[in-house]
Amino acid sequence: MNCRAMRKRTGILVALCLCLFVKESLALLPHESEVINKCILSYGGLNPETAERLGRFKDWAEGYEEIPCFTQCYLAEMFDFYNSSTGFDMDAVVRAFGEPVYTACQRKLELPFGSGLSSCQHAYEGFHCITNAENHPFTVIDNMANISLSAKTAMKECLQNVDQAKWKRFAAYGEYPVIEPIPCYTRCFLDKLHLFDQQTRLWKVGAMRQHLGVPARGASIRSCHLQRGKDRCATYYKQFTCHALALA
């Protein structure tokens, strides 16, 4: 995402763009340049080295802020959705970024249990999550068209049962790979939606279309039930993929 697109979408943290190397050419938010310089003053201010580090903000480790306390300083000085004492304001975060992003990052945005004050670590982890939430599986699921609320809930519940280290594989589903990116994930949400009749061994195509928007009406799906994998989970994935890709 380029700087102009980022400003249009969120209106904040232009410092995360590598074009900070040419500071004078940026159309920063009011007082943003001063705030950035203030927050990294002890690290030499805004120069090519610190700009390059800020440009990699989304790639910083989830629990390690490369420029300590920069995020808390920047957010507290610039925006109303974060307060250095009380932390993130739910309503303000939702207004700025949307409910799917807040939901995806809720655990990071809430103050740690038993803590009465926010911290540099809390500010960083919360905002780091927000800046990465565009591709967060929960956000992707919430933005899926032709998917019922029940299906979205089932898909999120099934992800909760998966090691979060594997969540990065979720994006691969859009390419319909031969091998399922997250083993048994498809079977999990299909079973939650009761889309396979265990007695007749047939798919409930009408219900599948209602909840998941596939297969397309008039699609040729007659052979989908013949697809087989090495186990039941793989078979579910192959047969569902067949329904999803079938052409009318």
Rank of each mutant, 00 (worst) to 15 (best):
I182A: 08
Y173I: 06
M90W: 05
R4V: 12
V140T: 14
I130S: 12
T241P: 03
N135W: 14
Y176F: 15
Q198I: 10
L247Y: 06
C73E: 01
Q164S: 15
P181G: 08
Y176V: 08
A248L: 11
G174L: 08
L16K: 11
M90G: 02
R232P: 01
K108D: 12
L54P: 02
Y236M: 10
A219W: 10
K192Y: 07
S84L: 04
F57R: 04
Y102I: 03
L193N: 10
G55L: 01
N146R: 15
K204H: 11
C19M: 07
L20D: 04
G206N: 12
A92D: 13
N143G: 15
P48D: 09
L159C: 11
L245P: 07
E34R: 05
A51N: 05
Y43M: 04
V162A: 10
H31M: 06
N135S: 15
A61W: 02
P112E: 03
K192Q: 15
S25K: 12
S84W: 03
A207L: 13
A171I: 12
E77G: 01
Y74N: 00
C188I: 12
I221N: 07
T10M: 03
N135E: 15
T71E: 00
G213R: 11
Q199P: 00
F79I: 08
N135D: 15
H136Y: 13
E180I: 04
D142P: 05
P68A: 13
Q227L: 15
Y43C: 03
I179L: 06
L29S: 07
T153R: 14
N2Y: 09
R95P: 01
Q106H: 09
A207P: 03
F189C: 13
S150F: 06
L26P: 03
